[in-house]
Nucleic acid binder design. Structure first.
Length: 347
DNA sequence: TATGCGTGGGG
DNA sequence: TCCCCAAGCAT
């Protein structure tokens, strides 16, 4: 038998139940697989679809990214989150343009070196775009394997990871690897879901150990999370009489890296001291706005905005280089974090 | 190797 | 309202 039961049952199931008409499956190329795989990291299909369509309209190929400004690329990523992915796409496009004549490389060793591409994404590109026998191990696959083989222990532990990679390799076939790869992701996304899995329609249920022991809800084992901390930050929404707003470009590392936000008050800094240090313009009106709650994976953020109206904005050389004036409304020019985008639209 | 990095939706 | 987390990677 060239491939096992698990693999054949999944391939059979895929014929009638797999997803074959997602936007990135229609005109499949290494480029479309690359972009979609990056967008899909830690992000659900439903969320990605509109971003993918808009992105591909503006950036149909590697060259179009290599020629654009990072700010514009990040504007197409605004709201999608994990912005390092967008910055890494930009870096990778530059590398591909320079070293590979804008042709996506075909070997694992070359692909794995590209920024933002790890083992699983490299495997997905090789399997889906080139039909080469490489495995993936994303959240869906981990869940399916952990249940089928009843793997206990936290997924993030290295010995569990190794075990799962070995099982992934074991089941990945050399023929129809593209269909198999899509099939196991589809099964995880639509049948072997985190809560209330649909075991009654699952093609693998017969030999699934989690089902046998009724442990679907316990597997994969979740790590207890520590309570989220709350951070608080004061921001200033400074607008002049011609509807320009002052924005701060955030450094590339850290939260919202490379995006634009409102100027923040430092620790212990007051609005007046900030204005003295940075603006030195007469202020027309100061209004305290309602605080905004924003929740991240690791902490909750409380944004305390203050709106400051001024008559005329100072000349560019008089403000620090990280500050920029932007005409309102802002439409697809720069990257904005989700809550900042909401606040700007309300101005 | 443990943690930082977003956001929106489900329960 | 709150907690969980969804097609991971980089450091």
């Amino acid at each position: 038998m060239s491939s096992n039961n698990f693999t054949n049952q999944l391939l059979d199931w895929f014929v009638n139940n797999g997803r074959k008409y997602l936007p990135w499956q229609l005109k499949k190329s290494p480029y479309s697989v690359w972009i979609s795989e990056i967008m899909l990291q830690q992000t659900q299909v439903k969320t990605v679809i509109p971003y993918y369509i808009n992105f591909m309209k503006r950036f149909p190929n590697i060259e179009s990214i290599a020629k654009c400004e990072l700010d514009e690329l990040l504007s197409y990523w605004s709201g999608l989150g994990y912005y390092a992915r967008g910055r890494n796409i930009y870096k990778t496009a530059k590398i591909l343009d320079k070293k590979y004549q804008s042709i996506f490389p075909k070997t694992y060793d070359e692909i794995i070196k590209l920024p933002g591409i790890g083992r699983s994404t490299a495997g997905a590109i090789l399997a889906l775009a080139y039909k080469k026998k490489y495995s993936i191990l994303d959240g869906n696959v981990k869940r399916v394997l952990a249940r089928y083989y009843r793997i206990e222990g936290f997924l993030q532990k290295s010995n569990i990871q190794e075990k799962l990679w070995n099982l992934a390799d074991l089941n990945t076939p050399s023929s129809n690897v593209d269909q198999y790869t899509q099939a196991i992701m589809d099964l995880g996304a639509t049948v072997c879901t985190r809560s209330r899995p649909k075991c009654f329609i699952c093609p693998l249920s017969e030999n699934c150990l989690a089902r046998f022991y009724s442990e679907q809800d316990k597997l994969p084992t979740r790590k207890p999370r520590t309570k989220k901390s709350i951070r608080e930050v004061g921001v200033m929404i400074i607008v002049d009489n011609k509807k320009s707003v002052l924005l701060e470009k955030r450094p590339n590392n850290g939260i919202w890296g490379g995006l634009y936000s409102f100027p923040e008050l430092g620790d212990g800094q007051t609005i007046n001291s900030w204005l003295d240090d940075n603006l030195r313009e007469p202020v027309e009106k100061i209004t305290r706005l309602n605080p905004i709650k924003h929740s991240f994976t690791h902490f909750n953020l409380l944004i305390n905005p203050t709106k400051i109206k001024i008559e005329n904005k100072p000349k560019k050389y008089r403000i620090k280089p990280r500050y920029f004036w932007h005409k309102l409304p802002i439409d697809r020019e720069i990257g904005l974090a989700a809550p900042i985008s909401v606040m700007i639209n309300e101005l």
